[in-house]
Structure formats: C-alpha cells, structure tokens
Write a protein that binds this DNA or RNA. Structure first.
Length: 918
RNA sequence: GGGCCUGUAGCUCAGUAGGUUAGAGCGCACCCCUGAUAAGGGUGAGGUCCUUGGUUCGAUUCCAAGCAGGCCCA
C-alpha cells in the first residue's frame, strides 16, 4: 500500500524549466503595464537621492557584450538603491553626433556629398541615429535594464545642443579657449579634412633622401661637420623648424672623404661600413644646438630630442615640421617650435614657401630636390615603398597639414593644476583608477575642440568680414544658444550670420556689422562631456553632481576625463562624487573578442539561447575590476547555476502551498533548527549587504550561491523534508519550518531581484497575495536588512559542533554505502561513543541528530576506551526494525500497532488523525 | 616603445598583514535516492598559486626582470 497521498508533498505551478527566452518578455510587458519605473520613483519620492548618470553609448549598431556588462552593472546599482529606499532615477542617453554616423550615411549616398545641402545631409544623419537609438533601446530593455526609456537624453536634442553652446561660452569667457594651429589629415584633391576613419593605408613609393646640414655653431673640433637627416617627404622641408635625435641613442661622428658626418652609431655601420668613428655622443648632449636650414639660407633649425625617433631607418635623425606631422607637432610646446605651414587647401605652396610658391607639392618635391642637389646638400636619394595614408574617397595619398583649430587650454588659469587638485575629492573604484586619471590629466595636451565635419554641433563663432576678428560675446553665445534651443543646430546651416545674431550686433573691434559663421563643429567628446550639465542640471528629478559614473576603463581617456574637464572648466567642481570602472569583455582564453578570432559572444543571440537572466548572472559572477571572460561554455555553466537558484525557489514555493501568514510561528516557539536557519539567513543578509554597499556584486553572488547550495539544498531543506512531508499538516513542527521557509524565500527573492529580475518576478507571481504585502512586484518590495534578534552566539557555537559532527558521520555513512551495508541514509543507525564529559550533551540532542543526519536512529554511549574531550568514535550499522512505508524511517514499532499497516508509531498517529478528520 | 591593470584547480572566484596538508561553487569521477525527479543527496580526484632571479630561517604572498593578456597612448 502507498501512503503517498497522506503526505504533504510540495505543490507549485512554478515550473522547473524556465524557458527564459520565451517568458522574459511577459514580465517586460507586465512592468510596462504597472509602470514599474514610475512607481518605484513614486515610492521613494522625497527620500535620499542617488543619481547614477548614464554614459551615452554611440547610436550605431546593435549592442554587444560590452554594453551588456556595462548596463547590467548599472541596472543592479539602480535596482539596489531603489529597493533600499533611495530616489534613484536612471535616465539613459545616447551619443548621436559624430564621424562614424556621418561616414555610414555618406557611404549610402547616391551622389557626391558636396551636392547635398548640409542641412539635408544632417537630416539623414539624424534619421540614421534615430533608427539605432530605437534598436538599442529595445535591446537594453530586453536585458531588463530599468530606466526612463520614454525620455532618454540625446546629445542631438535641441536643449542639449543649447547647453553645449552655453558651456563653450563659459569656458571662453573664463579665458580657457583659444584658436591655434594643429596638423590634421588633409586630402588636397578633395580639398577636405579627413578623420582617422576616413583614411586607408596603401603602399606608396616615396623618395627616401638623406640631407646634410651644417652646424651653425660647430661644437666639434673637426671642420666640415654635417648632421645627416632623413625624410621621405622632401616637400615638407620648407616647413622644417627642427631636427630630432633620440635622447638615449649613441650618435657617431664619422669620417667620409673630406667631410665628417653625424648619425646614429648603429646606422652608421650600415650606411658607411668602412668609415672610422671619430667620436660618439648621446643624442641628449646635442639638444639645443642649431644647424642650417635645409631650404632657406636665412633660417636655421633647432636640434631637439624625441623618444619616437626611429633607429631602424635612415640616419636616426629626423626632420621636424610641426605643421606637417603629428609627432612633430607634439614637440611644439616642449621646444617652443613655430608651426610653419606653407600649403593651401589644394596642396599648393603659398607665398610663405618663397620660390616654391604656387607649385603643387608634387612638383615642388622635384624642385626642392634639385635645389638641394645644386647646393651639394643631398647626400643620397633613393626610393622606398611604405604604407602611407590615402583618402577613402579619391584613393590618392593625403598629407598632414596644420589648420586653425579651437582648443581648450590646459595651462591657462592654471587649469590643469586645478583639475589635478580636484581628482582626489572623487571616490575612484577600484583604487588604482585614480592613478590612471591623474597620469592622463598630467600628460594630456590641450584639447582640440573643433572638427571639420558636418554631423555635430557648430562652434558658435563669428568672424568679422572687415577685420577678420573672431567674435564670441555674451550676446552672440546667447543668440546661438536660444536659436538652437528653439530650432536645433541645423538652423546654423540654414541661416546667415545676420539672421542669427541680434539686430544691431557689431564687431567689438571695428564696429563692422557683417560676419561669417564658423564652419567647424565640436568634437563629440565635448558634447558627451557636457552631459552632466545638459542632463543633470536641466531635469527636475535629477541632481548635479552625479552620485556615480560607471563605465569601462577606456573612459579614463574618454568620458570620465572629458566630463571632468568640462565640469571643472564651467563649474570649478567635478561632475561626479564617485567613479566606478570595469574591465572589458574577453574570451575564455583572455583574448579580446573579434570577428577574425571567431570568439565573439553576441548578447542578442544569447538572450535567445539562454535568456537575459543567465546573461545577467554572467555579469554578476565576473569580477568587473578585471576583464570579464565569456564564451558559450561559460554561459552554459551559468545556466547550471541559474537552475540551482530556480529549483531552490521552486522547492520553497512548493512547500508553502498550504501556509498562511496567520499560521506563522512566533520566533520563541520555533524549533531550534529553524531558529538556526534564520540565524544563517541573517548572516548571509549581512554579508550580502556589505558586498552590495561596496559594489562587490560577484562576492554577493558567491555568498548567495554558496548559501543556496550548502545551507539550503545541502542541509536545511534536505533535513526538514521529513517534518514537512510526514508531520501533520498543522503541527507546530511543520508550521515552524514553513514560517522559516517563507522568510528565506522572501529574503532571497528580494536580494536576487537586482541580479535576475525576471526570475525573481516569476517567483513573486507564484507567491500568495498574503505574503506580498500588496507589492505588485518584487521590485517594489523593500530590501531586507539583518535582524539582530535572530543572532545568538550560543546557538551558533552549538551548531558549529553539530555540523562538524554531521560531516564526520557522512564520511562514515559513505563508507557503509560503499560496503553495501546501506543505501539511503535512513537505512542506518549511528552510534556515537564519547567521553564522559560529552555524554549529556550528545544524549540531549539525539532527536536533533536523528533529524539532521537523516538516519533512523542515533545512539550515544560512553566509549570503552579513553577519549579526549570532544573526541568520539562513530559507528554505523543497519537500522533496527522495519521500514515504515509512510515515512521510510526504520523503527521497531513498524507493524506492531496494526499488523496490516507497515507504518511506525508516529505515522499511525498522523494517519488516525487524518481518518478522524474525514 | 610608454602609462595603468590582470595572471591561484578544467571554469568562475576566495585567500595568505610571509609560516604545518592553499579554499569555495560549478564541472568531472564514483555512489545513493526516486516523495524538489530533464530534480535532490553523499564521497572523492583535481593546483610548479604565470616564469626566473633577489630579500628571508622560510615566498603563492615582498622586490626586480621577463612571459602572456587587457585598456589607453605612441
């Protein structure tokens, strides 16, 4: 006969199989229906504010795993704060302007860009950005990211654009902004500036020349001494202002016929194998000397040193023209070099180039070489095939060319030092992050704010048509800002200067009233770097400064830095109180993800395969302070972890099917084991809370997983099955356990809610309304805090002993199992032989031990031999009596009371009661 | 090439303020159960703590160099 139907077995509709890809969208719809985000803010209105300010992703392409890592971490922070009673709005944003979108739109044009009016082109860029904003929005929502998705901030919003203008004005009036030269990629065929991404590298055959330059103030004892410079661009020689040596390298003065040459020692052996070295000096020693100019007799050239000088090609001495090279330009400040740039838009030399004026650089190349030859300065002329930048449109070689740009100065008004002083006021997580930002601020050059592109916010600068003065005044700034606020920045391209400026606006310098508009737009980093101002200060529900910025470590150069610079320049304060940095996503071998390696994990695929909650579990299981490794195998393993959490919830739910709040047992009346379970729960809550406070989510994850595995599945839930299933439904033994089960369930489902919001909500759905205290969503519930009343050192010490004993007994039971003595542990009887002093303790807890060890009987007796205190001998034997067909325990009473029923005395009592009820 | 960071079991992570046999969860192997069942339980095997030097009575831990990888520069 089966007694199964007389047991209280678990019942629940919570399925074992999650089918997250199919079910998660249901919860998304539900959250939208109940307007969860708004409700959460309502709940905490007026409470302490916590602002996590979202760093805007670029509005291009689908989200990848890096976005996933970033936004899930943010979401956990936000949800944690919301459940903890903080007013924690989360306004997501997008970075909308910029070259990549412009490039994509340009690629899709059916006619040349020049034939399309600027505002129409910009409209296409705007449409393009919109498409991806909508796409990414849905993708982020699908990940379970909670936020104000109805009202995200966009850097292309008119109000946002207006803020950019006003901030620029503030920085300008503070004297931090100036106009200067800087070399950029330039295609003189298309007559346009090019961005890095518009450059293709192809092999090109170039001249490779070695030029002799005499020392102006010959420091050598020898006569006829020349320094040998090497270059592949003779046409840049008119712009020469310096020659650079490597500071650490050795330079050798060698004898060649009647002349003596100076060049890098290791290269001299290659170029002049049979020559004699007269002297060797370090590059450093020659710094500050002057040599004759390669082109203009009346000028000279300064000897400088630079670590980028190559000792692999040429002579180890390079010609420096800050107007035509980025590296060359970088030496400008250190050596106070002039930026000479005698080339116009079409690649023609200007009057500045003297006799070469009017020549296109290619013709000039020949002329310059001829002149060098005539003067006897051209030592060698070869050609070289090297990788050289080419224009993506016309495919012709491009040049580097200095043009007028707008800069934020790091030095004016002691700005750099001001920023450096403010860095320590921010909390940087992890700690090393402060070193990185500090080093970068220390070293960074002036910030070039201007770009020669179409898709962005125009620089609000006017130029007087009469005196050429650059005009930026309070009035002009406000006029532009207001215009952008009302009509967006496209209006800049639709209107003439006089339509934008106030009516009787006159040049402050000459009084003239006609102006031209600046053609350049802002660097997009300036736009995103202004977000704290454009978003936090303009929305009534937000607050400046932000409580936290949370981004990948690359943002030390990017957003962390640009935001800091903008904020200090405009407000004299950092825009954030704390900055949290995370690593990058890599594959399971620690390598970066790339299509060519074939190791890319696509979050959208994984959502369809394993679900967002499993993906979120991956985020949480990774230590974000280093790189996060992902692969489908790693995610599969997290699927296993997920099932542990899920099945435990299922068990908890199943055993509460007949429980009501009114049946809860007061703490004082709980069985000891159940009180101990509450104690453990509270230890876990305390540990988890500490981990959350320090943003150590992977620690919280581990604590919880260990708790579910060891404390719950491996111990408490396993042990109390007997009580739950076998005892009378309404017995105190059962209700005591259920009381604690409910507490465990409610506590853990809340704590796990930020990690796995979908599953937590699914659990919540399966809870009786009675348990939920009218919370329609687990996310609207309050975060659990530890209950100190549940902690008891005495109880804890007692159970340390019991659990240690349990471990020892389990080893013995396993031996018995291997020997074939028992199978199920209920087939066993455990005999403990102990020291006289321990006898009472163990005798007293025999019933507890029988339950905790899940054996049919425990006997305790005095050991026959001498034992130390605490020492014991554990014996395992087959249990006496017969197996009770109801509770499966072995007992001598089985079949004794009623020979027809093979059940034990305890079960008879329950059965009689049940029959009596019927 | 430079700055910052990372490197502990197959995987994800603890840990050692320098000191007996370096831990956990997962995975794996073997076993039990069949009343959490495409579940649950038990036991166990896995480690030159990246490498090499140095400091020390003693180094996975401190120092230096190197290797591998990541981010940012050049």
């Amino acid at each position: 006969m089966s007694y199964k139907e007389t047991l209280n077995l678990p019942k629940t509709n919570f399925p074992m199989k999650a089918n997250l890809p199919l079910n998660e969208p249901r919860f998304l719809r539900y959250w939208e229906e109940i307007n969860l985000y708004k409700r959460l803010l309502e709940k905490n209105r007026g409470k302490e504010v916590f602002i996590l300010h979202d760093g805007p992703p670029y509005a291009n392409g689908d989200i990848h795993l890096g976005h996933t890592l970033n936004k899930v971490l943010k979401d956990i922070v936000v949800r944690y704060h919301l459940m903890n009673g903080f007013y924690a709005p989360f306004v997501p944003g997008w970075d909308c302007h910029g070259q990549p979108i412009e490039y994509e739109v340009e690629k899709r044009l059916d006619r040349p860009k020049a034939e399309i009016p600027r505002d129409q082109f910009r409209q296409r860029c705007r449409d393009y950005a919109r498409v991806f904003i909508e796409r990414q929005k849905e993708e982020f929502k699908r990940l379970g990211i909670l936020g104000d998705w109805e009202n995200p901030y966009l850097t292309m919003d008119p109000a946002y654009e207006a803020t950019i203008i006003r901030i620029f004005g503030r920085m300008y009036f503070r004297g931090l902004v100036y106009r200067g030269l800087k070399p950029i990629f330039w295609c003189y065929h298309c007559e346009t500036a090019l961005a890095e991404a518009e450059i293709e590298y192809h092999d090109k055959k170039s001249d490779s020349i070695t030029v002799k330059l005499a020392f102006d103030d010959n420091p050598w004892e020898e006569e006829n001494v020349f320094l040998l410079i090497w270059t592949t661009t003779p046409w840049t020689l008119p712009a020469n202002v310096a020659v650079a040596l490597h500071p650490e390298a050795n330079y050798s003065l060698i004898e060649f016929g009647k002349e003596k040459y100076l060049l890098a020692e290791e290269l001299s052996r290659k170029l002049f194998p049979n020559s004699r070295s007269l002297k060797v000096v370090k590059g450093q020693e020659l710094e500050g000397r002057k040599v004759s100019h390669p082109v203009f007799d009346e000028k000279n050239s300064l000897v400088v040193t630079a670590p980028f000088v190559s000792l692999e090609h040429g002579t180890g001495i390079v010609h420096i023209a800050p107007g035509h090279g980025e590296e060359d330009f970088s030496l400008k400040d250190k050596f106070n070099l002039e930026v000479v740039m005698p080339v116009d838009n079409s690649g023609k030399f200007t009057v500045e180039a003297g006799k070469y004026s009017g020549m296109v650089i290619d013709e000039a190349n020949e002329a310059i070489l001829n002149d060098l030859e005539k003067k006897g300065l051209l030592l060698r002329r070869d050609s070289i095939v090297h990788s050289y930048p080419h224009c993506w449109r016309c495919k012709k070689p491009v040049i580097f060319r200095a043009t007028k740009q707008w800069f934020l100065s790091m030095e004016k008004g002691d700005f750099r030092q001001q920023v450096l002083n403010l860095i320590p006021k921010v909390k940087w997580i992890p700690l090393w992050s402060i070193n990185r930002i500090t080093a970068m601020i220390k070293e960074r050059p002036d910030w070039c704010l201007s770009r020669q592109r179409s898709w962005g916010v125009p620089l609000p600068v006017f130029y007087c048509q009469n005196c050429q003065e650059e005009v930026i005044t309070e009035n002009s700034i406000e006029a532009v800002a207001t215009l952008f606020e009302n009509e967006g920045s496209d209006s800049w391209f639709k209107k003439e200067a006089d339509e934008i400026l106030p009516e009787d606006f006159a040049c402050p310098k000459c009084g003239n009233r006609s102006f031209e508009k600046e053609d350049d737009i802002f660097d997009v980093w300036f736009e995103s770097g202004s977000s704290h101002e454009a978003v936090l200060k303009t929305r009534s529900d937000l607050r400046w400064p932000a409580s936290l910025y949370l981004e990948g470590s690359d943002q030390h150069r990017g957003w962390f830095q640009t935001s800091l610079l903008v904020s200090v320049a405009a407000n004299n304060k950092p825009p954030y109180q704390a900055v949290l940095t995370h690593g990058f996503t890599v594959d399971d071998k620690g390598r970066k993800m790339s299509k060519s390696l074939g190791n890319v994990v696509d979050p959208l695929d994984e959502i369809k395969r394993v679900g967002a909650d499993v993906l979120r579990l991956w985020v949480v299981s990774s230590d974000y302070s280093k790189d996060a490794a992902a692969s489908s195998e790693i995610l599969d393993k997290l699927g296993e972890v997920y099932r542990r959490f899920r099945n435990t919830f299922r068990f908890l739910l199943g055993n509460l099917y007949d429980f009501e709040n009114s049946q809860a047992v007061p703490y004082e009346n709980l069985l000891e084991l159940d009180r101990y379970a509450l104690l453990r729960l509270n230890r876990v809550v305390a540990q988890v809370n500490k981990a959350f406070e320090n943003y150590r989510f992977h620690r919280a994850y581990k604590i919880l997983l260990n708790y579910f595995t060891n404390d719950l599945s491996g111990f408490y839930l396993d042990v109390i099955k007997d009580r739950l299933y076998v005892s009378e439904k309404d017995s105190i033994a059962r209700r005591s356990a259920q009381t604690v089960l409910l507490e465990i369930l409610l506590t853990t489902v809340k704590i796990l809610a930020p990690f796995i919001p979908f599953t937590a909500e699914e659990v919540w759905f399966n809870l009786k309304p009675d348990f939920k205290k009218e919370c329609e969503s687990v996310h609207l519930s309050d975060w659990p805090s530890p209950v100190s009343a549940y902690l008891s050192p005495i109880l804890e010490r007692r159970w340390d002993v019991i659990l240690a004993l349990r471990e020892e007994v389990f080893k013995k039971l396993e031996e018995a199992r291997t020997d074939g003595l028992i199978g199920n542990s209920l087939e066993a009887k455990v005999v403990l032989e102990v020291n006289q002093k321990d006898l009472d303790f163990y005798r007293e807890i025999i019933p507890l031990l029988e339950e905790v060890l899940i054996v049919s009987r425990v006997e305790v007796r005095l050991a026959g031999e001498e034992l130390e205190e605490g020492e014991k001998i554990i014996l395992v034997d087959k249990a006496d009596g017969e197996k009770c067909e109801r509770c499966w325990k072995y007992d001598r009473s089985v079949g004794k009371i009623n020979p027809l029923k093979k059940v034990c005395a305890r079960c008879i009592r329950v059965l009689n009661k049940l029959e009596g009820e019927q």
